[in-house]
């Protein structure tokens, strides 16, 4: 079975652990509990006929990505950069953050995800898209599970080279 390491990163409180829990355990809690350091878990997803083992690293949120220990990115194949659709501060430095991450992982797949979709309207999302310096790949809700599985399948396909990133 092919195994790929994926880093969940972004500012604190954006819902990385909630996405992690929704993806790995299919559960959600409204209570915000900060992540200390890093939490690693594994889940196998089916990409077409192929099984892919995703080793997911949920790392503690940092306001700026250059504060995340570089060793965490060691051997990573993909990065999910998560921001909170309800907090503009979590995507105001997105350009710098993504450039930094792509510098760390030049051959990796990077996905930009706007989380907490359940808390905003479609027109608000349109407004956020206009404000953002970069295009967002997916809008998710860890609470309802919307687009969570889709996110990992999309990422998996790109990491396996089935879809051009």
């Amino acid at each position: 079975m092919i195994s790929k390491k994926v880093i969940l990163t972004g500012s604190f409180g954006v819902g990385k652990t909630s996405l992690f829990n929704q993806f790995v355990h299919s559960r959600f809690s409204d209570k915000y509990l900060t992540t200390i350091g890093v939490k690693v878990n594994k889940k196998v997803v089916n990409i077409g006929d192929e099984e892919l083992s995703i080793l997911l690293w949920d790392i503690a949120g940092e306001v700026s990505q250059d504060k995340v220990p570089v060793s965490y990115f060691l051997g990573a194949n993909g990065i999910i950069y998560v921001f909170d659709l309800t907090r503009p501060t979590t995507y105001k430095n997105i350009m710098e953050d993504i450039n930094y991450l792509k510098g760390l992982l030049p051959d990796g797949v990077v996905k930009i995800v706007g989380n907490k979709k359940d808390l905003v309207t479609e027109s608000e999302i349109e407004g956020i898209k206009q404000d953002m310096a970069l295009d967002c790949d997916l809008f998710t809700s860890a609470k309802t599970g919307e687009n969570v599985e889709e996110l990992f399948v999309l990422l998996g396909k790109e990491m396996l080279g089935e879809v051009a990133s």
Partner: peptide, 25 residues
Amino acid sequence: FLESIYDHVAAKKVEEPEFRFSRLN
């Protein structure tokens, strides 16, 4: 955790600085 990093840490040389992973939950 080790599965995802082993190849990289095993390839280290004596003179190279250590790899530190802090606060693993």
